[in-house]
């Protein structure tokens, strides 16, 4: 199986594996990957968009402990029946990534959606931290 258009996209499409924390090992026998994420800010919230292909609302966990937000997606993978893997460019596994939240996030107003393997976490900004415009008066 040869690819014809190598010159079109030469940048590497590789998944980054989660590094094992010292002294802690994974309990599941699959690899874990760091989902690629975008983060953008709107007027009243911060949105984290993370790629978790193969994950749906039934196998994703979002936890907030102190100020660390952890996103975990668990693999629910079925190999095509009666087929064997002939050629592979990617591996599948769980997804794990954590973000440290600043104080400006309202801990009680965190919402998340997942569709087409993309997780979106909406973090509402706490009241006083909403963007304030400071007008400058001439003296």
């Amino acid at each position: 199986m040869a690819t014809k258009n190598k010159e079109l996209q030469t940048d590497v499409v590789e998944k980054e594996e989660v590094e094992v924390v010292e002294g802690a090992e994974r309990t599941r026998p699959v690899k874990a990957y760091v989902p690629r994420a975008d983060i953008y800010e709107t007027d009243d919230s911060l949105v984290i968009v993370a790629d978790m292909p193969g994950v749906d609302e039934n196998n994703v966990d979002i936890t907030l402990e102190k100020n660390v937000l952890s996103l975990k997606g668990y693999l629910d993978f079925q190999t095509p029946e009666n087929y064997s893997l002939a050629y592979a460019e990617y591996e599948v596994g769980d997804y794990e990534r954590s973000f440290t939240l600043s104080d400006e996030i309202d801990r009680d107003k965190i919402e998340a959606t997942i569709s087409d393997g993309v997780l979106r976490v909406f973090l509402a900004k706490a009241g006083p931290a909403k963007t304030k415009k400071i007008s400058v008066k001439s003296a």
Partner: peptide
Amino acid sequence: RVAPGYPAINVWANDEGVVVTAELPG
């Protein structure tokens, strides 16, 4: 192998044919 382009694919095969899978989140 490292995929030479986007998306990375996996190919599953048997005598009847192949199944090509690709992760295209979003």
